[in-house]
């Protein structure tokens, strides 16, 4: 007779549960992160320090063609992006059917502001560039089919229309 002792089995199961669970959650998060299409949106921001988590950039979206104040954005269910990825032509408050919806997260509004973790070595230069009016920051984000927005990176380019004069 070589039947496993039920107590020992339970003991092993209890030990394995955290590993299996964390592994499964990681796999799900990883898979989800690969879905969706990438878009570009102008942002403005600043860089508060957070000692525990390293540096991150908190930014405000400049949604093209959206005339809505922060109050409206805070209560909106979501936004609808129009255009061909990655270029957004215009953005409207989400009402009814939409091909590229951005849905508000439950954690907060998520439509007016967001945050992106940036490497320590890039945080300070990026903050300076964001404060520079002659440049504008573009956030590349991935929009999942379920409407979840995942920020990827911020690039800074000379603002359109304003040729920075050579000193």
């Amino acid at each position: 007779m070589n039947r496993p002792n039920p107590r020992a089995l339970l003991r092993a199961l209890v030990l394995a549960l955290p590993l299996l669970g964390l592994g499964a959650i990681w796999a799900i998060v990883h898979t989800r992160a690969q879905q969706g299409v990438e878009w570009d949106v102008p942002v403005r921001g600043y860089d508060p320090r957070d000692l525990l988590r390293g540096h991150y950039i908190v930014y405000r979206y400049d949604w093209p063609g959206l005339d809505a104040g922060p109050a409206l954005l805070a209560t909106a269910r979501g936004l609808c992006l129009h255009g061909e990825p990655p270029r957004i032509e215009r953005v409207a408050i989400l009402e009814g059917a939409c091909t590229h919806p951005v849905r508000a997260t439950e954690a907060g509004s998520g439509l007016a502001t967001g945050r992106l973790y940036v490497p320590q070595s890039q945080a300070a230069p990026l903050e300076r560039q964001l404060a520079d009016d002659s440049r504008r920051a573009i956030l590349r984000f991935r929009l999942r089919p379920d409407g979840h927005l995942m920020p990827l990176r911020i690039t800074v380019e000379p603002a359109a229309g304003t040729r920075s004069p050579q000193p």
Partner: peptide, 18 residues
């Protein structure tokens, strides 16, 4: 470590949840 693993996941994949 398990508790912080969730925060770490959020940092790497830029996700957030309540």
């Amino acid at each position: 470590l398990g508790l912080t693993f969730f925060g770490h996941l959020g940092q790497v994949y830029q996700t957030s949840s309540p």
